[in-house]
Simulated assay, not measured.
Amino acid sequence: MFLGAYHFDGDPAALLPAYDKLLAAYAGDVDLHVCVVRGDGITVFDACPSAEQFRAFSGGADFAAALAGAGLPAPRTEEVGDVHVARLREEATTS
């Protein structure tokens, strides 16, 4: 499993509804997914089966269209690396 990050810059109050819309479109297709609110935007950590699949997905036309359709700007992407261990104490939470 490979972890990537998408950094969306802007007002988090404006970005979060668009992010929620995007996430709803991919609801059943996520293995490891975390959205973190920053003072100047949001960062989404998302896992793919491999680095190659992360690159293909994050640079693909379908993802770009999904972002635009949800109202999100193009993110800065970051290849974080291979996941050694992922553990979650509770079910997924939202705030």
Score class of each variant (00 low, 15 high):
Leu3Pro: 01
Leu3Glu: 03
Gly4Asn: 03
Tyr6Arg: 12
Tyr6Ala: 11
Tyr6Asn: 05
Phe8Glu: 01
Phe8Ala: 04
Gly10Tyr: 03
Asp11Ala: 10
Pro12Gln: 08
Pro12Asn: 06
Ala14Leu: 10
Ala14Lys: 11
Leu16Met: 12
Leu16Cys: 03
Pro17His: 00
Pro17Cys: 06
Pro17Thr: 05
Pro17Met: 06
Ala18Trp: 02
Asp20Cys: 01
Asp20Tyr: 02
Leu22Arg: 06
Leu23Val: 08
Leu23Pro: 00
Ala25Gln: 12
Ala25Pro: 01
Ala25Arg: 14
Tyr26Leu: 06
Tyr26Ala: 07
Tyr26Val: 03
Ala27Val: 06
Gly28Ile: 03
Gly28Ala: 05
Gly28Trp: 07
Gly28Tyr: 09
Gly28Val: 04
Gly28His: 06
Asp29Arg: 15
Asp31Glu: 13
Asp31Phe: 00
Asp31Arg: 15
Asp31His: 13
Leu32His: 09
His33Ser: 11
Cys35Leu: 14
Cys35Asn: 09
Cys35Glu: 04
Val36Asp: 05
Val36Ser: 09
Arg38Leu: 15
Asp40Met: 09
Thr43Tyr: 07
Thr43Pro: 06
Val44Cys: 10
Phe45Gly: 00
Phe45Thr: 00
Asp46Glu: 02
Ala47Arg: 09
Ala47Ser: 06
Ala47Asp: 02
Cys48Tyr: 01
Pro49Gln: 04
Ala51Tyr: 05
Ala51Val: 07
Ala51His: 10
Gln53Lys: 14
Phe54Cys: 02
Phe54Thr: 02
Phe54Lys: 04
Arg55Gln: 13
Ala56Ile: 00
Phe57Leu: 11
Phe57Gly: 07
Ser58Asn: 06
Gly59Val: 04
Gly59Trp: 08
Asp62Arg: 11
Ala65Gln: 15
Ala65Tyr: 14
Ala65His: 15
Ala65Val: 12
Ala65Lys: 15
Ala66Thr: 13
Leu67Arg: 11
Ala68Pro: 07
Ala68Glu: 15
Ala68Ser: 15
Gly69Glu: 11
Gly69Thr: 14
Ala70Gly: 03
Ala70Gln: 11
Gly71Met: 07
Gly71His: 13
Leu72Tyr: 02
Pro73Lys: 13
Pro73Ser: 05
Arg76Met: 09
Thr77Pro: 05
Thr77Gly: 07
Thr77Ser: 14
Glu78Ser: 14
Val80Cys: 06
Gly81Ile: 06
Gly81Phe: 05
Asp82Cys: 05
Asp82Tyr: 13
Val83Ile: 14
His84Tyr: 15
Val85Gly: 03
Val85Gln: 11
Ala86Lys: 08
Arg87Gln: 14
Arg87Pro: 06
Leu88Asp: 08
Leu88Gln: 14
Leu88Val: 14
Glu90Asn: 09
Glu91Pro: 06
Glu91Cys: 04
Glu91Arg: 10
Ala92Tyr: 07
Thr93Trp: 08
Thr93Tyr: 13
Thr93Ile: 12
Thr94Asp: 01
Ser95Phe: 10
Ser95Gln: 09
Ser95Asn: 10
Ser95Gly: 10
